[in-house]
């Protein structure tokens, strides 16, 4: 049974359907990619899955349990955490305090400081621990958001463009991190525009276009799929 399952999710802004009956699954121990051109509805789907937006119709299931009506905090305590495309760091706090806030809310709250420091160390952020979060360059800030999400020891991790603003070497290191997370049994859902990253780490890729899933499958197939290219280039 897949760990996370979205079934027939529909979201409308005014008359426009941002998501139209979208279904998707993410399994433990695998990295699931979610790609598509701008405005395809990827971030909206993340909002629905993480509980920040109620869908008009459709369900979200975690471990088979229907969590559609639960709020974001409840879902976080069930083991879900996420990052944001438009950074949502706690800018007035230091990097370490950003992680500490999460640690004190998460399963590791008994040893919050240790939990936070361990994640800082794993991401190589220890040297920046006392820097104010709003002074970081974008690439590092995104990594701090990933770290803040990891502190919760999530079973489902939603990453919204985590590698934007990173250089090739940083991206390579990040790919290794994603693989090791999956190896630990986390279900990772990844929205990313860097195709080489998506194609190298994902076990399965969903392609979203104008609120529809237009293709899904292993990366090698997706790369050769004509409908996917059409989605990116505009319909012929």
């Amino acid at each position: 049974m897949p760990l996370l399952r979205a079934e027939g999710v529909t979201v409308a802004f005014g008359g426009r359907r941002a998501l139209d009956s979208v279904s998707l699954t993410a399994e433990a121990g695998r990295v699931t990619g979610l790609i598509g051109p701008n405005g395809a509805g990827k971030s909206t789907l993340f909002d629905v899955v993480s509980g920040l937006r109620r869908p008009r119709t459709g369900r979200v299931r975690l471990d088979g349990r229907d969590i559609t009506r639960e709020g974001p905090a409840r879902r976080a305590r069930r083991g879900m955490s996420r990052t944001f495309q438009h950074l949502e760091l706690f800018g007035r706090l230091s990097v370490r305090d950003n992680l500490l806030v999460a640690a004190e809310l998460g399963p590791g709250r008994r040893h919050a400081a240790r939990t936070a420091d361990a994640v800082l160390d794993r991401l190589g952020l220890t040297a920046l621990a006392e820097d104010p979060a709003d002074a970081l360059p974008t690439g590092v800030a995104r990594l701090v958001e990933v770290g803040r999400a990891l502190v919760l020891r999530p079973r489902v991790l939603l990453l919204d463009e985590p590698a934007a603003g990173q250089d090739a070497e940083e991206t390579e290191r990040f790919a290794a991190l994603l693989r090791s997370l999956a190896a630990d049994g986390t279900a990772v859902l990844l929205v990313e525009h860097d195709m080489s990253l998506v194609m190298s780490v994902c076990d399965e890729v969903y392609v979203l276009d104008l609120g529809h899933v237009v293709a899904c499958g292993p990366p090698a197939l997706i790369q050769r799929d004509e409908t996917v290219l059409a989605a990116y280039l505009g319909e012929a």
């Binding site: 790369q223 996917v228 290219l229 990116y232």
Partner: peptide, 11 residues
């Protein structure tokens, strides 16, 4: 060309 740049198939 575009296919390779958008979807990263060829390099």
């Amino acid at each position: 060309e575009l296919s390779s740049y958008y979807l990263g198939s060829a390099t």
